[in-house]
């Protein structure tokens, strides 16, 4: 499952491992706009932008959940905060991303720090419940913001700009900016996971008592990871508000948090790129099924449950066991 980290020790340049699956994923994402030009372009660009935006949030969740065992049921809160930063600042005429992006990241990181300080004192089911509670809290706070649309949300009048330049205005350019953000978040999380910090963080999931008795303050490491995941969630929200040009409390409902967990499980937990596959599969399936029948949830729900239950490694795990059946001799990478 955790292909990234249980490889034998390596040094120097060979430490930069090139893996086929993530390369393929990013290659496909980079080619989408070209393929989209041959079809309903706006639709495809919009759909895949959405996929990548949620993939960013999902991979941040996988970072704390798949590597640290911190199953957060309130991760959508960070997405919502990032989105509201764009919405609220925009309502006051502030559209420059040099302001809105740091605010989106900063406020979601601060929220992660404060709630993490409380949540991380608890374990397992209690952690799930209390992250859920904080998520619902911020959901209701957003719904009560009457000047900013309350439950109805508010329209983002203009996408973010950079020093007055309408950088996000073109859908294609915006697509590649989101892709760059996804790649950046992915590379960062990968680096964190195998770093000194990440090794302690992963160790704490395996055996927190052991980690404490060799001299690490488990709580501090977990809180830092939680803040990182929160900030990346905020980035996702910042991009989401720009993609939809709309923000609403629904962005941080518990259903959204649940969807993020499902995306992570769906793609393959503890791999990071699995979260991207999961987000893509989830949103594309949802989109396809919704086009076929209005009762799509009746098909979608059980399907998710089956995959999560029976393909333990998610879609990536399924792919891997298929590959092994087809090419039994080869044991790379």
């Amino acid at each position: 499952m955790t292909t990234l980290v249980h490889t034998p020790a390596r040094t120097g340049l060979s430490a930069i491992r090139v893996e086929a699956v993530p390369v393929l994923i990013f290659l496909v994402l980079a080619l989408v706009p070209i393929a989209a030009a041959f079809g309903p372009e706006t639709y495809w660009l919009g759909l895949f932008t959405r996929v990548m935006v949620f993939a960013i949030a999902a991979l941040a969740l996988d970072f704390i959940c798949g590597y640290g065992g911190l199953v957060s049921f309130g991760h959508a809160a960070f997405v919502g905060i990032g989105a509201y930063a764009v919405g609220i600042l925009g309502a006051h005429g502030v559209t420059d991303l040099l302001i809105s992006l740091p605010v989106a990241l900063g406020v979601s990181a601060l929220f992660a720090f404060l709630t993490g300080t409380v949540c991380l004192r608890t374990k397992s089911v209690y952690f799930i419940m209390i992250t859920l509670a904080f998520g619902q809290m911020i959901y209701f706070v957003a719904g009560s913001l009457a000047p900013y649309g309350g439950d109805d949300g508010l329209t983002v009048r203009a996408r973010s700009t950079l020093l007055g330049l309408p950088l996000f205005a073109n859908d294609r350019v915006f697509y590649y900016i989101v892709l760059g953000s996804l790649l950046g978040s992915y590379m960062l999380c990968r680096a964190f996971v195998v770093s000194r910090f990440g090794r302690v963080f992963r160790g704490a999931r395996e055996n927190a008592t052991r980690i404490a008795t060799i001299g690490y303050d488990v709580f501090r490491y977990q809180r830092i990871a939680y803040v990182i995941a929160g900030a990346i969630g905020g980035l996702s929200g910042f991009l989401l508000a720009n993609a939809t040009e709309f923000v609403s409390p629904a962005y941080m409902s518990w259903q959204r948090s649940g969807e993020l967990i499902i995306m992570v499980l769906f793609g393959g937990i503890g791999t990071l790129h699995g979260a991207i596959v999961g987000a893509a599969a989830y949103l594309l399936l949802e989109d396809t099924l919704a086009g076929v029948t209005e009762h799509w949830k009746l098909i979608f729900g059980p399907m998710l449950v089956l995959i999560v239950l029976f393909a333990r490694g998610g879609l990536l795990g399924l792919g891997e066991s298929l590959r092994r059946k087809l090419f039994p001799g080869r044991s790379d990478p």
């Binding site: 034998p8 430490a15 090794r199």
Partner: peptide, 12 residues
């Protein structure tokens, strides 16, 4: 320090 976020720990 173990608050290092970059560089593979298992390669040290």
């Amino acid at each position: 320090s173990s608050y290092r976020f970059i560089g593979r720990a298992d390669g040290e």
